[in-house]
Design a protein around this nucleic acid. Structure first.
Lengths: 340, 340
DNA sequence: CTGTTAGCGCCTTCAT
DNA sequence: ATGAAGGCGCTAACAG
């Protein structure tokens, strides 16, 4: 049975309140008593009981990250980064699988609020696709920070990256290499990134006075299989695109697989590029050219922002934008028939 | 302010204890009162306050999974599976990054036990490499279930896969294709899998009366970079191996990358195979031949076993073995110079 | 079958 | 600068 605050008080010869003050770094304790209490704490091996603290403060000191199992792939690095922040800040961090529109997910969320009294939430796409989550949390006055949310209402805290800009940059790269028939693999409709990346694609075409061809835009659902299927269809059709810009890396890997299967060399016969810069992007020959999304920073910023809000220090800026950047690897090259 | 048990009692016209009984599904309540209480619960929107329950029962209803950030890559599927089990069983599941030998990790672990009173732990390799964790938990009488532990003392609960058998099976596959110079990429020394897989490699060689050549065994640390480097050295040396059996898939992907970089076709000029069957294995052309490790089942079994133990029902078997199986994909083929 | 009482360990309030 | 009392919401133990 671990020591309680009373054991410490007895040993230090003071009241439990004084121990409490020392433990929580509150003022109004003589240096001398403080030292004596601290010695007693060490002597009995005291650590505060979190459950008791939670009960009396009516806080859980837990925050919850809602994630869609199919898309969020917490690289182990991200996961351990998040857990470390939690440890530093004395918050438990729980992950909750969440499928938008699923009744079961909604029930879980409600019970999380009711029973656990989770102090705050972070959403990742596409968990914010419906307004259910934000409205529910709003009703219960539970703070929420969104990562790359679908909508960006004023005053809602969120952390986002600029997908339009990123996609446009990638298109400039492909266009600069000489590509003109560039296919685009679209993502699911419940994620803002799908639309924003498409928008960047269109803007770049327009800037270069290349007509937008809807036949070159296919759905990929941001999955390997989706990218594979879309690429097969594109590559078996005619005229073939000389490059495929996949809305995310998973789809890009599927496209590369499809190309290889058809005997097409990448990048010799087809350029492929993606978006996100997942770990696998650098580990597949010849290396996937992609847009590095600052996943670590996004989630770290979101978690820290939430904790700041929970601690009551309203930050100057609730809405943070982070930069992406192009990562050129081996999967893009000038088109075979290009005239240099 | 959410409703408390007292609000329900008032509305249902009974004592709080009766409400408690209904909430916890205890016997000795008339069907009629039970119904009345349940109606009251719904009416006021009552849900028990978990912090209070935790305090009074002196349990945290939290379990913690210790993981080594570099190696455990919780595919999103696994992560959400785990969280779902936790939800079903009413346990919060926390992940804790843990580096064996690091003082900071040890401190975190101690504070987790002291403050959070975590009810039980699961370790993943190589977190169990030293005896620190198991001894600490033993001292505090905190239950522990290990996944693929380094040692397998009697009566220690663990869940494991048979790596020797798996590796031998893979070797039979390569030998059956006609390979004789097969290199092996070893993993870190603090993981049992490293040794067991090497053992399987050796056993297969011996069964085929092929002398063991230490020069064909290289360290890869079970990482992409490690596999890449080891493969470069192997392939630039002479005579070249005709196949590389990597101790895990990450290293195998590194080896494939190295081969491609040297202009060697896989599997035409070199066969490569791995172990684990991570998601990327099926997504890299031409598909990585590997041993499917039942990662989901391992962790699910471990978590369920731990929860069983925590609930006091001592399961018949504390030590569970799960089968692996060969997954043949495109990265292995007969050697070029083989005589069929 | 149902209710009463007594804490769990801590923090808050208000005295001193 | 310190302490005493009260209560957070719940369950365990014991009465009725």
């Amino acid at each position: 049975m671990p020591a309680t605050i009373r054991d410490v008080a007895r040993l230090a010869g003071c009241s439990i309140k004084t121990v409490s003050r020392v433990v929580n770094g509150e003022p109004y304790v003589t240096e001398e008593t403080r030292a004596r209490v601290q010695a007693a704490i060490r002597a009995v091996g005291y650590a505060p009981n979190i459950s008791a603290r939670r009960l009396v403060q009516n806080k859980s000191f837990q925050i919850c990250i809602l994630m869609y199992p199919g898309l969020l792939q917490p690289a182990s690095g991200i996961l351990s980064l998040i857990m470390d922040i939690g440890y530093e800040e004395n918050y438990d961090i729980l992950f909750q699988p969440y499928f938008p529109t699923h009744a079961r997910s909604k029930r879980k969320l409600v019970s999380l609020i009711y029973e656990h009294r989770i102090d705050g939430f972070v959403t990742t796409p596409p968990c914010d696709a419906e307004d259910f989550v934000s409205e529910l949390l709003d009703t219960f006055k539970v703070p929420l920070v969104q990562i790359n949310p679908f909508n960006r209402p004023e005053k809602t805290p969120f952390v986002a990256s600029d997908d339009i800009e990123g996609a446009r940059g990638m298109m400039e790269h492909l266009l600069g290499l000489g590509h003109r028939r560039i296919a685009f693999l679209m993502g699911p409709r419940n994620m803002r990134a799908s639309f924003d990346r498409l928008e960047g694609y269109k803007q770049a075409l327009e800037a270069h006075s290349i007509p937008f061809d809807p036949a070159l835009v296919r759905d990929s659902e941001f999955t390997f299989d989706g990218g594979y299927t879309a690429a097969r269809l594109l590559l078996e059709g005619s005229p073939r695109p000389t490059a495929i810009f996949a809305g995310n890396d998973e789809a890009a890997l599927g496209a590369i697989y499809a190309a290889r299967e058809l005997g097409l060399d990448v990048p010799g016969g087809l350029s492929v590029c993606g978006c996100d810069d997942i770990a696998a992007a650098g580990r597949t020959w010849p290396g996937l050219t992609t847009i590095h999304m600052p996943a670590e920073e996004l989630i770290e910023t979101a978690v820290r922002l939430l904790i700041q809000i929970l601690k009551g220090s309203l930050p100057s800026s609730n809405q943070v934008f982070l930069q992406s950047r192009l990562v050129l690897r081996g999967s893009t090259a000038p088109p075979a028939e290009a005239s240099t």
